[in-house]
Amino acid sequence: MEPVIDQAFAAALYSDDDSGLDTGASLLAADPASDAELLRRGEEFVRRAWDRGWLPADLVRLVRRELDEHAAGLAAGLIGSEVRRYEVLPPRWQAQLDELPAPPPTGRPDRFSYASALLALHRLLLRLPAIEPVGPPPGALRDALHLPPAHDEPRMLTRIRALLAKAEATGFPEEAEALTTKAQELMARHSIDEALLAARTHSGSAPGACRIGLDAPYETAKAILLDAVASANRCRAVWNSDLGFSTVVGFEPDLEAVELLHTSLLVQGTAAMTRAEAGQRAGGRKRTKTFRQSFLMAYAQRLGARLADGTARATAEAAAEGAVPGASAPGAGLLPVLAARDVAVTGAAEKMFPETTTTRVRGATDLDGWTHGTAAADRARMGGSTPEIPG
Rank of each mutant, 00 (worst) to 15 (best):
G391Q: 14
D309N: 09
P173T: 01
V343S: 06
G73K: 09
S231D: 11
F251E: 00
V361W: 11
R52G: 13
L197R: 15
W50Q: 01
L55T: 15
E2V: 10
R200K: 04
A10Q: 14
Q184Y: 10
S191F: 12
L255F: 05
L164N: 10
D242G: 11
P207H: 07
K166R: 15
P137H: 06
G347C: 02
V4E: 09
R159A: 14
L119E: 07
E175P: 03
R161D: 13
L39D: 14
K289D: 13
G363Y: 07
D242I: 03
G347S: 07
D366G: 12
G369S: 03
L119N: 09
E44F: 15
Q94N: 14
K182C: 07
H70R: 13
Q268R: 15
G135M: 01
T315C: 15
A344I: 07
L124I: 09
S113Y: 14
V258R: 00
G208M: 01
R379N: 03
A195N: 07
D98Q: 12
P56E: 02
R313F: 12
R362T: 15
N233E: 10
T356R: 04
A237K: 02
S116M: 05
D68Y: 01
V4I: 05
V46M: 05
A329G: 07
A30Q: 15
A57N: 10
E2Y: 01
A102D: 14
E87Q: 15
P3F: 05
A276W: 00
Y114G: 01
L186N: 08
E168D: 10
D98R: 09
E99L: 08
Q96P: 05
S34W: 03
D143W: 04
T288N: 00
V337Y: 13
L334R: 05
V345W: 11
R61Q: 13
A344D: 04
T274G: 02
A375F: 02
L55S: 12
S264A: 15
A376E: 02
P90A: 05
L214Y: 06
A102Q: 14
A344N: 04
Q280D: 12
H146S: 12
I224L: 15
S26K: 12
D58Q: 01
L196A: 06
G20W: 05
T220V: 09
I160E: 01
Y218R: 07
R40L: 09
Q268G: 09
L74A: 04
T346E: 06
G53Y: 03
L367K: 13
A282H: 13
